[in-house]
Amino acid sequence: MSLIHTKDLTKTFRIFEKEPGLTGSVKSLFNRKFIDKTAVANFDLCVEQGEFIGLIGPNGSGKTTLVKMLTGIIAPSSGEISVLGFYPNKLETLFKKQYAVVMGQKSQLFFELTPMDTFRLFKELYGIPEKTYKRNVDDFVELFGVSELLNVQVRTLSLGERMKLELIAALLHNPGLLFLDEPTIGLDAATQRNMRGFLREVNSRKSTTIILTSHYMEDVRTLCPRCVVINGGKKIYDGGTDSLFDMYQSRKKITITFGRETDFIPPEGAETLERSPYRAVFILPKDQAGKIAAQITRDYDIADISIEEEEIGKTVEKIYAAKGLNNETEAGA
């Protein structure tokens, strides 16, 4: 049986709409207008034990609403939903003991106290046996390298340090399912990289199923073999992350620094980003990149040349702009 199963899952919010200005405010007292906004529509999803899934989509696409339904925070308007065999919005204690949720912008740690104080609280809340608690604290503290932060006030920690400790608090009870909402938000590049390493380790070592929501495509690309793209409340892609990028990262960027002044003109069909007698930057279809680069190296005096994937941001824009991707749900998931 799947760990997560949803069918035709839909959530519609009733939103109060008001005309601007004082007149609008007064009018709304007597004649209130509501609009129905469907945040998630007919969403089907199946997740198996041990998977690491990226849930991506632009702002307001319905990702957070979906996660809120999966964690039981909000009730669906219609459709089927089963998480770990439970109906999440029943909020059964047994259910809540089997998953954890970490939100980058919300904290479970007590800011005035030390991380160890919160860990102690979580030990009792989740009924973690003393032996397991000690072993998990030791393991995670070593893995995250935070032994010196355990007895200092949480409010004095940096964002990156706090996120590591949030993750430890969430993992203490060995959850089978972990929801991560923007865990690397606001972190510097090095800390993001570290965090990705830890998450990969947790997923492989403990076989924890992880659902990751992130705007940082690098997170999804490096961590999640499978990703689900959601836009306008609808699933527009569910399948391999690499396949998705292969599909949309169809161009490569070539940067050339010439050894002497040239009158180089980028090949036909290339999009020129920069051109001067000593330097040229252009984008061209992926399948032509190798051939063109080899030809330029032969014909010109090259000081340096690099071939890179097209900027990830541009690829993401293309993915989000697409309304009907080839859905691999049936084949892939």
Partner: peptide
């Protein structure tokens, strides 16, 4: 929206 904090922990 922060009431969610009490809904996801087993209390």
């Amino acid at each position: 929206g922060t009431f969610a904090k009490y809904m996801v922990i087993p209390t």
